[in-house]
Design a binder for these strands. Structure first.
Length: 878
DNA sequence: TGACGTCGTGTTTTT
DNA sequence: CACGACGTCA
């Protein structure tokens, strides 16, 4: 702990007696554990030896970690820098550090080593990597860089890059081998191509050679090299073992083999290893995470103390019940159940949308209600959160980034502030990568990928042919890329065939780089960046008056702002740090908890976050769970792990919600430009009906029903079943009996599209529901049955039964709503069509003396929001 | 060489 | 749809 400076003039107090010191420490220990439950306290005070903390979602594990560090420092007298905390994301590391600082103060807190595996390994390698031949100034190649490199190799090997020979696909196989710690240059893995087969080992060999020559490590190599270093250089390992005596690993269930071995090596000497994790939240299997690492912890460390944190402080019991109902279907998991002292909570609200735009609109309207926004139909407080929620308390989560687009568009139309986390990551934007590539070129002669990235950006007439000549010469003559450029300028090393025009261009480029290099270490980093952008002509290139150029320039200014963060370092160190950190930082870390905006985020990226209100969109078979997991399940023999991982992902998503959860799905969705019909996700079905408004399960039609359907997804008006989902995942549909219409039978949702269309046309849309009132209702109408009932209740409209009797029986058509004098013809949420303005949705509608005033938000953004009189505008229900 | 159009193709999640 | 590969023309 920091001590106040000693004033020599003052009389030093007598040193405290041993007894006094002991009492003070005990008091501190008391204070640290005061606000913890007994299990949390045990996790905090069990400081020595291996410790496994099984921490369920929302059980306060970050709290435990932070308090544990405080306890180590304050009570056990451990020096802050002897404590290592490894997290999975930079954001988690930052949060943890913040919490620690809050507990033990800035000066001690900042010395605690907290970071991701990748960042820590990079740091270790930067310092000691030379022992295994890793250059001190290595660069980290991200996915883009790797692909650029692999593309080169495929070109040289004359392999057509498509399908399984796409750079990404090949790199995926190489990465998988590395994650399993199999040497990719020696694997027996081939891709069949027309007229032969491609050996992955050969491409991997080339790839590793290139990385080596470029002085680069990819993400996987960062971990592998760090493990290799500890293995090959015991004295280096010993140094780190003695420095980091108290080890903590967060999200242990997500560690892969190299990470496991790295931490195991570090822990081998002092054995003070505390790992925190939850097998139910293991969602990175596709990246090599090995759930066995946590399941086998007790086998690895037989003397381990095991603490289970099962009290949840985040969510309502209802939300926990829903989450548990889903995840407990998994076979591979340790049995456990979270509980909470929080109240029961609101039902989960479900909405079946017509398509993704309708889904997005519905979410936007719900958010208006929740926040009391301008279009809100709620004037009364209907439950604990409605009308009182701030945008920052809301998150919309989805399975894949592509889903955010429709939601963004709706938010734009509704004027809802939002922030997107993830997606196109900032440091992956072209202009940002270009600028960073310039900076990397200033630091390295050999970074081919960066050289090739910028050598002709902005255009300086150095084309593909020239680049290939340079590359060829570098390979042939063993030159660095920079030396190859010099050789081309001088016309040596067989590079004397280039036209004088290109030689001039190269000369100019060489002068530019030299000039900029002379400024490194002289100019402060932000000014160096200015100089780079100016001298290279990059700024001029963007200043073409286009909107795009402006946007890109704005991004570069943002990058410039980042460079000012390293003001306290020397310009040279600042540059190196920038390059290091930008390679290892994802945009996930850009999540701003403070901005008053709705958060749009993938479930993966949302892990570790919590929100009072959560929407999960796109709960459809094929989207969530993904079609890949469904395909895997259908393989012979079936592979069940992908589906179990999807289920865990659903669990993670649900448990992000503190008070209110909304789940949505669409009955049709445009995917890669093509409309697809969708069936509700099995995860929706797995949530017990009584926890949801708008139950999916129809009574008496469960798995044991006569048709052996997992659930029924629709009935026609007569209450006749129109289809359902088979236990194996296939779908069943009932024929309409009409001539020409398909007959009863099974079909496969993801393959037999024609059959699905048949099912769709046969009776009713896929999402028809039995309403709470018992009548049949078509949910692609607009709001689902529960929603309609809810709205009816709020509107206090007599004679409006829930579920809107008289629902259509034929897809696409809709009975006209009768015009009743003195009664509103349009209701909030109605989809309408206007001859000139196209389709839209009614936002508000109110009766005037003699007419009805309808406000409609049209789908066409150029039309926007319009208020019109129902008697004049030829507005029709769509 | 570079600008521009057409065609084909693939799609999760991220350090 | 959105992006990259490839072909054509200036």
């Amino acid at each position: 702990m920091p001590l106040p400076p000693v004033d020599p003039a003052s009389v030093a107090p007598p040193p405290p007696s041993a007894a006094e010191r002991q009492a003070a420490t005990a008091a501190l220990a008391e204070r640290i554990t005061a606000n913890l439950n007994p299990e949390q306290a045990r996790a905090v005070t069990t400081t020595d030896g291996p410790l496994l903390i099984l921490a369920g979602a929302g059980s306060g594990k970050t709290r435990v970690l932070a308090h544990r560090v405080a306890y180590l420092v304050g009570v056990k007298g451990v020096r802050p820098w002897q404590i290592l905390a490894v997290t999975f994301t930079n954001r988690a590391a930052g949060e943890l550090r913040e919490r620690i600082v809050a507990l033990i103060g800035e000066s001690a807190g900042k010395d605690v080593q907290a970071g991701t595996f990748h960042a820590l390994c990079a740091r270790v390698l930067r310092r000691d990597g030379e022992a295994i031949g890793v250059r001190r100034n290595f660069v980290v190649y991200d996915t883009d860089d790797q692909q650029a490199l692999m593309k080169q190799i495929l070109g040289e090997e004359d392999i057509e890059a498509k399908g399984a020979t796409r750079p990404a696909a090949i790199l995926g196989r190489i990465s998988r081998a590395k994650n399993e710690m199999v040497d990719p240059t020696a694997i027996d893995d081939f891709i069949p191509v027309t007229g032969g087969r491609v050996a992955i080992a050969r491409l991997a060999t080339r790839y590793q050679e290139r990385l080596e020559r470029a002085g680069a490590l990819d993400f996987d190599d960062l971990l592998l090299a760090a493990v290799r270093l500890f293995d090959a250089a015991p004295e280096v390992l010993a140094r780190y073992q003695d420095r980091w005596r108290y080890l903590h690993v967060d999200e242990y269930q997500d560690t892969n083999r190299p990470q496991y071995l790295w931490i195991k090596a570090l822990a081998a000497k002092h054995r003070n290893l505390a790992v925190v994790g939850d097998d139910d939240q293991s969602i990175y299997g596709w990246r090599g995470a090995d759930i066995r690492n946590i399941l086998d912890f007790e086998r690895d460390y037989p003397d381990a103390t095991v603490v289970k944190l099962e009290q949840n402080y985040r969510s309502t019991q209802l939300i926990l019940d829903a989450a548990h109902a889903v995840v407990s279907r998994n076979k591979a998991r340790t049995d456990k159940k979270l509980w909470t002292a929080n109240d029961g909570g609101n039902s989960i609200r479900r909405y079946e949308a017509y398509d993704e735009d309708d889904e997005a609109e519905w979410i936007a309207r719900r958010i208006e209600d929740l926040t009391g926004g301008r279009g809100s139909i709620l004037t009364r407080k209907a439950d604990d959160v409605d009308g009182t929620v701030r945008p920052l308390e809301i998150a919309v989560m989805y399975r894949m980034n592509a889903q955010s687009r429709a939601i963004e568009e709706a938010f734009l139309r509704y004027g809802i502030r939002y922030q997107i986390v993830g997606g196109t990551r900032f440091y992956q934007r072209r202009e940002v990568k270009d600028a960073l590539a310039y900076l990397r070129v200033l630091r390295s002669d050999s970074d081919v990928v960066s050289f090739e990235r910028i050598i002709n950006v902005p255009a300086r007439s150095i084309g593909e042919k020239t680049i290939q000549a340079l590359r060829g010469a570098a390979g042939r003559e063993g030159l660095s890329t920079w030396d190859a450029v010099q050789a081309a300028i001088a016309g040596t090393h067989g590079l004397d065939v280039l036209a004088s025009r290109t030689r001039n261009a190269l000369t100019d480029f060489g002068i530019l780089v030299k000039r900029l290099r002379a400024r490194v270490g002289v100019l402060p980093l932000p000014e160096l960046l200015d100089e780079v952008l100016e001298a290279s002509g990059y700024r001029a290139m963007l200043a073409d008056g286009s909107e795009e150029g402006e946007e890109r320039w704005a991004n570069l200014l943002e990058l410039r702002a980042v460079t000012t963060r390293y003001d306290d370092l020397s310009p040279e160190d600042a540059l190196d740090r920038l390059l290091e950190e930008t390679a290892l930082v994802a945009d996930q870390d850009s999540y701003e908890g403070e901005a008053d905006a709705v958060t749009l985020i993938t479930i993966h990226a949302a892990k570790g976050l919590e929100f009072p209100v959560v929407f999960i969109a796109g709960l459809e078979e094929g989207v969530f769970p993904t079609s890949r997991s469904i395909d895997a399940e259908r393989e012979m023999p079936p592979r069940l792990e992908p589906m179990e991982e999807e289920r865990r992902l659903a669990y993670v998503g649900i448990t992000r919600a503190k008070r209110r959860l909304y789940v949505t799905h669409a009955s049709r969705r445009v995917f890669r430009g093509m409309g697809q019909l969708s069936v509700p996700s099995r995860f929706l079905v797995e949530i017990p009906a009584e926890l949801m408004e708008g139950p999916l399960l129809v009574e008496g039609e469960g798995a044991a029903g006569p048709l052996d359907l997992d659930f029924v997804f629709g009935r026609n008006r007569g209450g006749r079943l129109i289809g359902g989902v088979r236990p194996g995942g296939g779908a069943y549909r009932q024929g309409s009996g009409r001539p020409g219409a398909p007959a009863d039978g099974d079909f496969r949702p993801s393959r037999d599209l024609a059959a699905r269309r048949g099912a769709f046309a046969a009776g009713a849309p896929s999402g028809s529901l039995a309403s709470p009132g018992g009548g049949a209702v078509s949910a692609w109408d607009d709001d689902d049955a529960a929603d309609a009932a809810y709205a009816a209740h709020l509107d206090d409209e007599p004679g409006r039964a829930p579920g809107r009797p008289g629902a259509p029986t034929t897809a696409g058509s809709r009975p006209p709503r009768p015009i009743v004098p003195g009664e509103r013809r349009f209701r909030d949420g109605d989809r309408v069509r206007h001859p000139r303005f196209g389709g839209g949705i009614v936002v508000t509608s109110k009766l005037t003396r003699s007419d009805e005033e309808v406000t409609v938000v049209f789908t066409d953004p150029t039309v926007g929001r319009k208020t019109m009189l129902a008697s004049i505008a030829s507005l029709e229900l769509a």
